[in-house]
Design a protein around this nucleic acid. Structure first.
Lengths: 162, 162
DNA sequence: TATTGTTATACTCTATAACTATA
DNA sequence: TATAGTTATAGAGTATAACAATA
């Protein structure tokens, strides 16, 4: 639980360094964007740079690890990415030999994306690095807070989906 | 408080639509990125499109509303933006007549950025639209959850700063 | 020499529209 | 006509290095 000492100064007037945040202090969108910067930095340090994976590439590998194979359409929806962007992501991963595309026999328009052996190895490696990445985030939160935070994020994401 | 009915299915194996999230379900970075997409959409609907303001431009105006004037250096640090990016943001706002740059008399290298009359009017308008924007986010959270969420985000951001 | 801010440039990310091929 | 996916293209965001002016 967040258990701040009660500071009578309104959040909007509390100085952070040499400036005041004003209404931004309570602005969820602003805070989410800032948190996104921080967590992206942590991702890059622990997974992105060592394995040469971008956040979206990592997410895609994790999805294929959990689902064996998915269509580009499913991946686009899961990652909230427009289809053309997804095509490029898959192209890159395919060029690196991490995923392959297999055309459906029954409907030759559609295809399934799946991990190659190399892709599965890299995905496993990436997954094993997750605890180290989370350890850094966990330094900011107690275990209880972290669980709470995850649930609240899930609610916001779920509600924001359309 | 998040008060989920206890579902014995592990988070990683719960299907969302026609796929499973796997380890991403508990991945804070992934959730933050998704939440960022949702909140950016809400920002654009309520403030960004009606007032032709990008998120960073809105943030900058709110900071100037709270601080009267700031140097580009302070703004860059506050917005976690590299200096050249900030230059371009200020350029745009200046061309629209929303902010102006004033050179310091004592140290002619530095300058102060401040709102013009038009900028102050637009900033006030933008601030008045915030409640409507937050109302949408609030539909996903109870008032208590929202406060909690804000505090947790602040902790993560604070800790991720460097 | 160090600092403030800008210019130039490149690279990534994202979004839209138009297209191909199947159905 | 509708759907799955791709190509082409443009715009926005972000990062780095080199520079000008001032201290």
């Amino acid at each position: 639980m967040p258990n701040q000492p009660t500071d009578p100064t309104p959040l909007t007037h509390r100085p952070r360094g040499d400036w005041r945040e004003g209404v931004l202090a309570g602005n969820i969108g602003y805070l989410i964007a800032q948190a996104n910067v921080a967590s992206t930095r942590q991702f890059n340090a622990h997974i992105g740079e060592p394995l040469a994976l971008r956040p979206v590439e990592y997410s895609l590998l994790m999805l294929l690890r959990a689902n064996a194979s998915l269509t580009p359409g499913q991946l686009a929806r899961a990652l909230v990415l427009p289809a053309p962007s997804l095509t490029m992501v898959i192209d890159r991963l395919q060029q690196r030999g991490l995923v392959e595309r297999v055309r459906s026999e029954t409907d030759r328009r559609s295809q399934r994306v799946l991990l190659t052996a190399d892709g599965a190895t890299l995905a496993r490696d990436a997954e094993q690095r997750s605890p180290a990445m989370h350890a850094e985030m966990d330094a900011a939160l107690t275990p209880g807070e972290r669980l709470l935070f995850t649930e609240l994020l899930r609610k916001v994401v779920e509600h924001g989906r359309r």
